[in-house]
Design a protein around this nucleic acid. Structure first.
Length: 206
DNA sequence: CGCCTTTGACCCGCGC
DNA sequence: GCGCGGGTCAAAGGCG
């Protein structure tokens, strides 16, 4: 398993769902549409991770993971200090800023959404994961010459968000952070992430 | 016309 | 209290 480094931590006090289940139930990656611009053999690469070409390395990054590795940027961002979550199921479409930034309604504890990130080596920033996203913000990031983009799932009632940013120290790496659980089926017919996960397991067992 | 992106302003938490 | 950084809003404009 040289090309594929999968690391995963799952931190959520709102659900007992396992990381893999959470991922596979809500995430499905379609690497064909966008990646076709940069690398039309992307799917083939995923189905046969035997080449040494490391143009598209996929990593899962754990929340709260701290360390000196190149994941530090991600780890910092999703560290417990950034508790900007809403409820776990994306069923609250709070409109007030305060209630969306923190999950504090009166008398309720803060409940963190499941949040996970992964890195891909790619020329393009936006991975087509099969869901439709609307961009709602972009911010400059400290110590990073690339901005971070904020996206929300366009499905009504689905409050899943994602952040996309490119690493300054390695321009080939795109970090995508997902937050929340989709409350609806995937919109596009794609290769399911479960399939990718299965492949990851296969390769990780090598 | 509907959906999306852009972008400046605003809010909030946190460290000093 | 203040400043900084991160996250979000919302108006304006673009595009198919």
């Amino acid at each position: 398993m040289d090309n594929l480094a999968a690391m995963f931590h799952y931190s959520s006090s709102s659900t007992s769902t396992s990381p893999a289940a959470a991922l596979s139930s809500q995430l499905s990656l379609n690497m064909t549409n966008h990646y076709s611009h940069a690398d039309h053999n992307y799917n083939n690469r995923y189905s046969s991770y035997t080449q040494s070409d490391d143009d598209h390395e996929l990593r899962l990054i754990g929340e709260n993971k701290k360390g000196p590795s190149d994941n530090a940027v991600v780890a910092d961002r999703i560290s417990p200090s950034s508790n900007s979550f809403s409820t776990g199921d994306g069923d609250d479409l709070n409109t007030s800023m305060a209630s969306t930034k923190l999950n504090v309604r009166k008398g309720e504890k803060k409940i963190r959404k499941p949040k996970f990130a992964f890195q891909t080596r790619s020329q393009v920033d936006i991975l087509d994961d099969g869901y439709r996203w609307r961009k709602y913000g972009q911010k400059a990031v400290k110590n990073n010459k690339f901005p971070r983009s904020y996206y929300r799932c366009t499905q009504q009632g689905c409050n899943v968000k994602k952040q996309v940013q490119r690493l300054s120290k390695d321009e080939g790496v795109v970090v995508t952070t997902y937050e929340g659980i989709h409350t609806h089926p995937i919109e596009k017919s794609t290769d399911n992430f479960e399939h990718i996960l299965t492949q990851m397991q296969i390769y990780s067992s090598c």
